[in-house]
Design a protein around this nucleic acid. Structure first.
Lengths: 329, 329
DNA sequence: GTGAAAGCGCTAACAC
DNA sequence: GTGTTAGCGCTTTCAC
């Protein structure tokens, strides 16, 4: 763990100026063969690597972009990251990401620490709209992911209203009579989903039952399930906040001896990779997580490059995926 | 996106020297009330935030640690990250991570970029042992995760040999006669798992069939499954490289009409959260992913603080988790 | 307690 | 082509 050689060490060893070495490192110029050879030799011998911090201080660029996600344990977000990572790498940026674990307090600190180390950010946050300015105050290009951010900068997200509406339509068409939604109010898309579902049921003169989640996770789905499945007016279909919650419900239903889809239809949202492998396979809505990450990163990179056309909300269309956890009544 | 105020701006506005502002920001000293008030006012008005890059250049510390993982799509790794994140945050560090997507080429670039931006690293890599020095050459404390790194620095990982051995014992005890292993040779633990299984079967005078995966993923499990399940000498038990592969096998078996566990026992390794929710629920070995991340981070943090006792390999014990994908013959 | 000055390792003009 | 020089924004002696 000896100390690292600096550009000065290389210059001294090669017998040239530090400016020349700098130009060699950055390949911004051609050299006389002798000089080039000497520099290369010195770099090799010292195993020199330039310090990106020092470089960034001058150039104002870091070559990195950041992604802030709410929960790395949710496959939806890991897919967003996968997509973003691929595009960033292709364009010569590297991606740093940070998991806020759904904690608002943490968000502040992590965002600030990250924002100064990258050229731009994609951020998923539950922050109320009027606080979004705080993120912009870091002075870096930002793309908000998973929600519209009207007037606050570019954003990308799936159309939560229509995702929920589609699910409602399916369930109604399948003649379900008592439809429930397990919502998670703190999440941004929750209200839109609720609206989509309510509007759809209203049109058919049906009412929606709502149950409240404390977190959008498998464990929480399992915890909540009994209280909705053991009521005397048990719903005959439940729309879960996301696939994770639906998987928890599936597990609980099995334990409780409730057959799905025979006695109860169950749907999720997200279409995470595992939803295809539950049994019964989960009916859900694909929200194109990976594409969200890719396209979000493309937007961010354009913004970093100074493209003023990057603004407004990009609405991505959800796709209904009907599998075996729903059945006609 | 106007330019950020510097410490100089604050000093000018407060009518003090930049040295004084620096001391205020870092709380390294007490002040006369008047000065303190003026500085605070200036900081607030300008919404000043110190530039961590500039600070790092001088102090040599960044306050961040890095984690390099092979595939963020694998819940095993996301759990490692979760554990590491929690511990890092507790200790006042923040965590940046990077996904190499199982690509060696990428690894180089990402590692170098990351290493200069953090105080230390936890790295998962398939790099051959003799190349591990390259990682150490970055001059930062490193903990290798998921494998021993003899003579190359501290490491932590689950005992892959015994994990496989346990699975072998279970399957033998259940009177399986034709046991197969779907391996993934490029991965570090593959050889140890192979040894564990082979030793166990040898002791019972049984032979192990081996099949080769091209990646340790669900999709690859699905792809490989038919070629092992449709042979005339079909195994009656298959040990999958990990739970993801096992889930792929489960899906394929369903499609092929092969009943699990009635006609075939199937086991995975990792105990990812979803393995409890497949049907049948997957028998597997818990490798304590989250603990691996926590403890690895504790080791790293101690190493960063200069503790010379951090070295050698910490071997974590796996735990057999018997569920419903295996059955006595 | 406070400030002047010397850098951290590097790049970007601008001479030569 | 190559070298000189002036910083990037900050911390850290070391005087006062």
């Amino acid at each position: 763990m000896k100390k690292k050689p600096t550009i000065r060490d290389v210059a001294a060893r090669a017998g040239v100026s530090i400016a020349t070495v700098s130009k060699y490192i950055n390949a911004t110029q051609r050299f006389t063969p002798g000089v080039e050879r000497k520099i290369r030799a010195a770099v090799d011998e010292l195993a020199y690597q330039s310090n990106p911090l020092a470089r960034s201080m001058i150039t104002g660029r870091t070559g990195s972009v950041g992604v802030v996600i709410l929960d790395i344990g949710n496959p939806h977000f890991t897919n967003v990251v996968k997509g973003a990572n691929r595009v960033a790498l292709e364009q010569g940026y590297n991606l740093l990401f940070v998991d806020t674990e759904e904690s608002q307090a943490r968000e502040e600190v992590l965002l600030e620490a990250l924002s100064r180390r990258v050229d731009g950010l994609i951020v998923s946050t539950r922050m109320p709209e009027d606080q979004l300015d705080r993120v912009l105050a870091y002075g870096k290009p930002v793309v908000f992911s998973g929600r519209p951010a009207p007037g606050k900068g570019p954003s990308i997200g799936v159309d939560a209203y229509s995702a929920a509406f589609m699910l409602g339509e399916l369930l109604v068409k399948q003649r379900h009579k008592r439809i429930a939604y397990t919502g998670f109010a703190p999440a941004r898309p929750d209200m839109e989903r609720m609206r989509g579902l309510t509007d759809c049921l209203d049109a058919h003169r049906m009412k929606l039952m709502r149950f409240e989640l404390r977190a959008p996770t498998i464990a929480e789905g399992e915890r909540l399930a009994p209280s909705v499945l053991l009521r005397k007016d048990r719903p005959d279909a439940v729309v879960c906040y996301n696939d994770l919650v639906a998987i928890g419900f599936l597990g609980a239903a099995r334990t409780l001896g409730i057959a799905i889809p025979e006695e109860l239809s169950l749907v999720g949202i997200d279409n995470i990779p595992f939803s295809r492998f539950t049994r019964p396979a989960l009916t859900t809505v694909d929200i194109q997580s990976e594409y969200l990450g890719e396209e979000g990163m493309r937007m961010l990179l354009r913004a970093i490059e100074g493209d003023p056309a990057v603004k407004g909300h990009v609405k991505v269309e959800p796709r209904l995926v009907v599998r075996d956890s729903t059945r006609e009544r």
